[in-house]
Design a protein around this nucleic acid. Structure first.
Lengths: 352, 352
DNA sequence: CTGAAAGCGCTTACAG
DNA sequence: CTGAAAGCGCTTACAG
């Protein structure tokens, strides 16, 4: 096969363009052993400045990129980062992926996605074999699977790096990104109280998601600040789905002494509550205010647009990946990843 | 280090549980060369039945799983499948991923996600280097990047398997899954015509997405069937976003002789149209019918719930992965992946 | 600071 | 039908 002519900007290094340069090519061209090239690749300090520069020049000329597969085989560890999740919300998943990829760009790591079913009996073994087989560099776990202690235990056992994204502290700081959902619930409560609401209902998420309890406890904290407490009669157990939100709201809004405001555990349920209010001939926010949680796209698409709690999922993903790769997260100390209130049109003054 | 006792169901094979069995262990225990074990792994026909069974038994006992990294290095090809996409809709992305993973489960392949920007000047080179570096087994391309001929050319050049998901034929059958969006547009048109509509407006998607044209041409075909044609005055150029749908609908619905029905190129724009109708004091579907496309979750969340065209994205993903892995797609011949009409409450009889 | 040897866990190419 | 040798492209462990 005839060798292709070298392309612009690439010197003819004796390495044809159809075959990618290897560490051997670089070593030969730089007049060093491949071990020394390896040292440069791995940023070892013990390489003479002049040697390093010569090697780096050859790397540039040849367009050499180390083969992650070969490197991984020798390292006994791949350059893959896994995202293990069970949250079914597409917006959450995609935002998380985008955040992880933001941080991974140019790092040489790739993202492998691994949805799982927390209810599966083989969950823990499935995850273990996935990680061992691929020798993942590390994984990011998101709620609710991030809250499973057995899974975390497996990570430690097989020595896989991991970051758990969760609403509260469930692990050492080095293994955690906390979303502090309690603060979101608190903000929702304060908002509604400031609008004069005193009968505030709550639609919870799935009990197996820690966020569900945190959002509620934030609400309770806010109510307490206002001298109120959460009336058990105004609490409905939802499941983070549209349908469950609709059913729960239907029940709450049919009460003789119905709430003037409802805080739903997420936007999906809040959207369901909007439909329930409409069915019952109630106007939002004139008759009842509704507040969601997440600030996913749906929040601004429904009518009226939802007042909700914004969670910066993409940023959280970025922080998680940075932490996993050993870079100090750009704003670990800052609070840029905490939930914040977004006021739209589904909340208003309590009816008099 | 003391060897762990063998676990239930695992014979003591001389391979400790902390170290995973390798091809050498299997070869030794089965009393054959590792080449023969390799033949069994790769389903080579030239292995004696008895030998094969002996090796398979050892594989079972040891829980041996070939190391994809080592296999990949020797094969000069990884066991990773890439999803390359630029469609920003989270629901599309996640459904596609789920479909691909459905087909990949148990296959030993893993899914690497790679969003890209079609507007980037380095798009083609970015994709090329991503694939070459990781030596991807194959990739699935979705609209609109799937419609880029330069990208497909790179796949052929570097010998990477690929499947293009697109609304029309843009490649050889072996490299395509066609979604036939024209049929969806046709179904929307027939539906509206059957309801008595004669002034039907259209909000197009982004011109760089082929689907945008196909959906329109389906609409036109349907109108022609009914002896109608698409009035240029009733066509607005949208961008597949909620905001663009809102703006376009605002304009169309403000016309003196406004349409009695609008077919929007996707659900996001249809949702925007719903908001525009509300702003103008028009009731849907009494004053104007609105039909979307995609049948993503948002379609059932807005009010009124959208009549739309359902696209089985997850199934399409499954078919794409099956085709990529060389399994004949379970229902290539069938039409289970084609768009279908879903009637909800945003469409009704034309006003008299 | 640098290198020759051995090895990571597989497969290819060649024999027999 | 089966195997010994060489190799995929890197790194580790050991020397010097």
């Amino acid at each position: 096969m005839p060798r292709k002519p070298p392309t612009d900007g690439e010197a003819d290094t004796g390495v044809s363009r159809t075959r990618r340069a290897t560490i051997n090519d670089v070593a030969r061209l730089a007049g060093v052993s491949k071990k020394t090239v390896s040292r440069v690749i791995n940023a070892s300090p013990s390489v003479q400045q002049a040697t390093r520069e010569r090697i780096e020049a050859v790397i540039r000329e040849t367009g050499y990129v180390p083969d992650p597969q070969a490197r991984g085989l020798a390292f006994r560890r791949s350059f893959l980062i896994g995202l293990i999740y069970d949250n079914p919300n597409p917006q959450y998943v995609v935002n998380m992926q985008l955040g992880l990829l933001d941080a991974m760009r140019g790092s040489g790591f790739e993202l492998v996605v691994h949805p799982c079913d927390r209810g599966s009996e083989t969950l823990v073994e499935d995850i273990r074999s996935f990680i061992e087989r691929q020798k993942l560099f590390g994984v990011v776990l998101t709620p609710s699977v991030s809250e499973d202690e057995r899974v975390a235990e497996v990570m430690r056992e097989i020595g896989c790096e991991y970051i758990r994204v969760a609403s509260v502290t469930v692990d050492a700081p080095g293994h955690m990104i906390e979303t502090q959902d309690r603060l979101g619930g608190l903000a929702a409560a304060r908002h509604l109280i400031s609008l004069g609401h005193r009968r505030i209902g709550f639609i919870s998420g799935v009990a197996t998601f820690r966020s569900s309890h945190e959002r509620r406890s934030g609400l309770e904290e806010g109510l307490a600040e206002g001298g109120l407490s959460l009336d058990p009669a105004l609490v409905a157990e939802g499941a983070y789905t549209f349908e469950s939100g609709q059913e729960c709201a239907r029940r709450l809004l049919s009460l003789t002494d119905r709430p003037t405001a409802i805080f739903a555990g997420n936007d999906e349920m809040a959207a369901g509550a909007l439909h329930a209010a409409r069915e019952l001939g109630l106007s939002v926010p004139a008759d009842v205010s509704i507040v969601g949680y997440d600030d996913f796209q749906i929040a601004a698409r429904v009518w009226p647009p939802l007042t909700t709690i914004h969670t910066p999922t993409r940023k959280i993903g970025r922080m998680a990946a940075e932490k996993l790769m050993g870079r100090e997260a750009s704003d670990t100390a800052a609070e840029g990843h905490l939930p914040t209130l977004v006021v739209r049109q589904s909340s208003g003054p309590a009816p008099v």
